[in-house]
């Protein structure tokens, strides 16, 4: 009886060890993928902040998407898991390291854009004022130039009155 109990305990322990051994790599795999996704989302959040600050993150976000594709492809290629994860992590680190530069460039670009907008608006406003002042003068000078060889004759009706005479008295 005692031997049976010992045998049962031993086999139960063996089953438990086998179960633990078989489950551990899967659990580790999931955790690594989840960690990579969490890190990627962290980098994405930083990129989104950089974009709000005026940075052009188009290339960086495409790089990050490449890392995301690599992580997601682990499901299809579990044998290359380590390689894919390493590659994805390298891309993520590269993107993360370029964020401060992107923010600086974005701020500079936003500053130049604001100056450009202000200059364009002020030139349009000046154009409005200049057009208001000079358009009538230019129009009449051209009108006069076009008719400089004209001979003017005042025509009166039978009663000697001039119709629609707009000359200043």
């Amino acid at each position: 009886m005692r031997q049976r109990i010992r045998l049962f305990t031993l086999s139960l322990a063996l089953i438990l060890v086998v179960l633990l051994l078989s489950l551990t790599p899967n659990v580790r795999c999931e955790t690594e993928e989840e960690k990579a996704i969490a890190l990627l989302r962290e980098v994405y959040s930083k990129l989104a902040e950089a974009e709000m600050a005026g940075a052009d993150i188009r290339d960086a976000s495409q790089q990050l998407n490449k890392a995301l594709t690599l992580i997601k492809s682990i499901d299809e290629n579990p044998q290359d898991k380590e390689k894919l994860l390493q590659e994805a992590l390298t891309i993520m680190r590269d993107v993360d390291s370029m964020i401060p530069t992107l923010i600086d460039e974005g701020r500079r670009a936003a500053f130049l854009r604001n100056i450009n907008t202000a200059l364009t608006i002020s030139s349009i406003a000046s154009l409005i004022v200049l057009s208001y002042i000079f358009t009538p003068r230019i129009f009449w000078s051209l009108w006069l130039k076009a008719r400089r060889n004209w001979l003017i004759k005042i025509v009166a009706d039978k009663g000697g009155r001039v119709k629609n005479d707009r000359r200043r008295s």
């Binding site: 608006i121 349009i124 406003a125 154009l127 409005i128 208001y132 358009t135």
Partner: peptide
């Protein structure tokens, strides 16, 4: 003068709105 002014102001406002 008023018509010219109106045309110029409308054109200017449209241009500024486009830029903004």
């Amino acid at each position: 003068k008023a018509v010219i002014m109106a045309i110029v102001i409308v054109a200017g406002a449209l241009s500024i709105a486009q830029i903004a």
